[in-house]
């Protein structure tokens, strides 16, 4: 029963990792940009949520109504004001600019909020749980989080294949030059993709902040977890990122069960193993 519990908890955490991954995967898919500051933006969202919950007295779930649009606007402006200038054939500028951004964000948060660990209080929701069997219960909050992760992936999938926005994303991703000839303003489309990515980041940040303690230095690990989920699941496969997130969550939970020091390490090793033996990921491009 203990192991069943471990695996279930791992699956639920995996939903969070899938959220980290979905935002990363979205912008890579649309504009081949790997955002090194992705994890720090998740942590930024957590701090925005902290301000909103403290300032407006909202509970964390309700704070999404503020945090999501705020992060989306930040994403749009970030892309239009800074990252669009780095787009091109050379991979160095976007990589190094987002790396610099990561350092700026970490140190900026440190300056504003100090290095103290923080956490969002969700009140009664935090301890609420469903008893499935003797010694086996699932928290309501992790369930909401997992449900949202699935909904986000499904929503992204639908958006990509059934909306005008998704069509623009695919066209720009296929051939940015011709997309312009068809009347698409690539800069605007890229900025919309980043806005959407950071809207997802906002949801991830809020749930991260409720689940665990966070501080300004916790961003890079979130980037790495999201990245591992992307690679494990298979590049360019949205459902793959969900599978990758879940697998990463389960492996980490299993590692932690064996030895608390192995939690994160086990995830990394699983990632490297996938890379070594199935580098195209578990769900490859063909099955998206």
């Amino acid at each position: 029963m203990n192991w069943v519990n471990t695996i279930l908890q791992g699956v639920l955490v995996g939903g969070l990792y899938a959220m980290f991954a979905a935002g990363l995967s979205l912008i890579f898919g649309v504009m081949k940009l790997v955002n090194i500051a992705h994890g720090d933006l998740i942590v930024l969202a957590a701090y925005v949520a902290l301000i909103v919950t403290d300032g407006l007295g909202l509970n964390p779930i309700a704070s999404l109504l503020v945090v999501v649009p705020v992060m989306a606007v930040i994403g749009y402006c970030l892309q239009r004001g800074l990252l669009n200038r780095t787009m091109g054939d050379d991979i160095l500028p976007p990589l190094l600019v987002t790396f610099g951004l990561s350092v700026i964000l970490q140190n900026g948060l440190l300056e504003l909020f100090s290095a103290d660990s923080r956490r969002l209080q969700a009140g009664a929701l935090e301890t609420a749980s469903l008893q499935l069997a003797d010694g086996l219960s699932l928290g309501v909050l992790p369930l909401i989080q997992f449900g949202l992760a699935v909904a986000i992936i499904a929503g992204l999938h639908w958006m990509f294949y059934h909306t005008a926005l998704g069509r623009s994303f695919r066209a720009v991703s296929d051939d940015p030059r011709v997309a312009q000839l068809m009347g698409l303003n690539n800069r605007h489309v890229f900025a919309l993709a980043m806005a959407l990515s950071l809207a997802i980041v906002a949801v991830a940040g809020v749930f991260l902040a409720v689940r665990t303690n966070f501080d300004p230095a916790t961003g890079p690990a979130r980037l790495i977890f999201g990245f591992e989920a992307v690679i494990i699941g298979g590049l360019s496969s949205l459902w793959g990122t969900l599978l990758g997130g879940i697998l990463l969550g389960v492996v980490q939970a299993a590692g932690a069960e064996l030895d608390p020091g192995w939690q994160v390490l086990a995830g990394h090793v699983a990632f490297l193993a996938v890379l070594a033996f199935r580098p195209q990921g578990l769900l490859s491009r063909a099955s998206r």
Partner: peptide, 26 residues
């Protein structure tokens, strides 16, 4: 002013109809 680019350059991940629709966004 619209262009038919050299080598067609259709969007491979779009269907025929989606290719046409995207041409008509403006």
């Amino acid at each position: 002013i619209a262009m038919v680019p050299e080598g067609r350059r259709l969007f491979p991940s779009l269907t025929v109809e989606e290719n046409l629709i995207i041409g008509g966004q403006f």
